[in-house]
């Protein structure tokens, strides 16, 4: 915890804050400037039966008659103090709508995350112990296979096999234990594939290092070599992947909740998309960005503490694990 570290950490924090604000602005620009006018589409939909005066009142209440920069400024200043405005559809506070469905998504996502981590470690560590003849190739094929499967297909397969054929759970009771469990498995498998991919690559890299050869020469068994030498250095870069996987969990919950008929952030987004409820979408996307940036910031800050070889360098996300890093790190050091 040197002074340099703290100074860098403070700088990172400021950068993260700016990125979050810009992400909000970007979302705002995307939903308000792109062609297509959802506001009039929805409000003037004869099914809703609004009169002209009511439409005017709603537009005025939402501040939609203001020029776009003014709207942006108003909503951004509200966003900073945690006010997400009112849903265009139900006129209830967006924050309430999100708070209602958040617990369900949190349960699903954390279960999926635990399953993903467990599965990834089992597979990656398995490749170190299972001999080539006994299906090591199968384990190694796991990540690339499941990265090629659409995640809703995994969900449908689970429903078909365990729900329909084996009758283990009922799809019409989406909050039962088994339904939640299989939804979490469906959401977790693609994430676990990504983590396992990195873990396996790291393990292979470490076991080719000279110190591993020396240890083998000293007569260490594979088990001891793994536990004493390979485990720690190969697991550290996974911190980065885990941080990136959070985004995937958020995006994937949209699909998984639809497949399993659960309520949650995903189904809220789904509903808001079909009714073009922009304030809700804006809030969810911005919150996702906040979560993503914060998790990555934490990973960035924790990493040098876990691995003393790594220094916190200035610039966007520089860690030893990803392929394009060394070049980017160099340039970041040069340019800033």
């Amino acid at each position: 915890m040197s002074n340099a570290y703290l100074a860098d950490a403070a700088k990172r924090l400021a950068q993260a804050f700016i990125v979050i604000l810009l992400a909000y602005v970007l979302t705002f620009v995307v939903v308000s400037i792109l062609p297509g006018d959802p506001i009039t589409n929805v409000l003037r939909d004869p099914q809703n039966g609004f009169s002209e005066d009511e439409i005017k009142a709603i537009i005025a209440a939402q501040g939609l008659d203001q020029p776009i920069p003014v709207q942006l400024w108003t909503s951004l200043s509200h966003f900073v103090i945690g006010d997400f405005g009112l849903s265009m559809r139900s006129s209830r506070p967006v924050a309430t709508l999100i708070a209602e469905v958040l617990p369900s998504t949190l349960i699903l996502a954390s279960a999926a995350f635990a399953i993903a981590l467990l599965l990834a470690m089992t597979i990656a560590y398995g490749t170190q112990f299972i001999p080539k003849q006994l299906g090591q190739g199968l384990l190694r094929g796991f990540p690339s296979f499941f990265l090629s499967v659409p995640n809703f297909v995994i969900g449908l397969m689970l429903i078909h096999v365990f729900g329909f054929q084996l009758g283990l759970f009922r799809v019409i009771a989406p909050n039962s234990f088994w339904a939640t469990f299989f939804a979490a498995v469906a959401l977790g498998i693609p994430v676990s594939a990504r983590i396992a991919e990195v873990l396996i690559a790291n393990l292979d890299k470490e076991s080719e290092q000279e110190y591993a050869a020396v240890a083998r020469g000293r007569g260490l068994t594979q088990m001891r070599l793994f536990a004493k030498h390979l485990l720690k250095p190969s697991s550290l870069p996974v911190v980065t992947v885990i941080a990136l996987a959070i985004g995937e969990l958020l995006g994937g919950s949209l699909i998984t909740e639809t497949v399993f008929g659960r309520t949650g952030i995903g189904s809220l987004v789904q509903r808001s998309v079909s009714t073009q409820d922009l304030p809700v979408l804006q809030a969810v996307v911005s919150l996702a960005a906040v979560v993503f940036v914060l998790v990555n910031l934490i990973a960035d800050l924790v990493y040098p503490l876990l691995d003393p070889r790594v220094k916190l360098v200035d610039g966007p996300r520089e860690r030893p694990s990803t392929a394009d890093d060394s070049a980017t790190a160099k340039s970041a050091a040069v340019t800033s």
Partner: peptide
Amino acid sequence: DVLLAIPNFLLAVIVVTA
């Protein structure tokens, strides 16, 4: 950085909505 901060799939969803 900003583009990376928004989860890919959510970004695709809001763009297609717009």
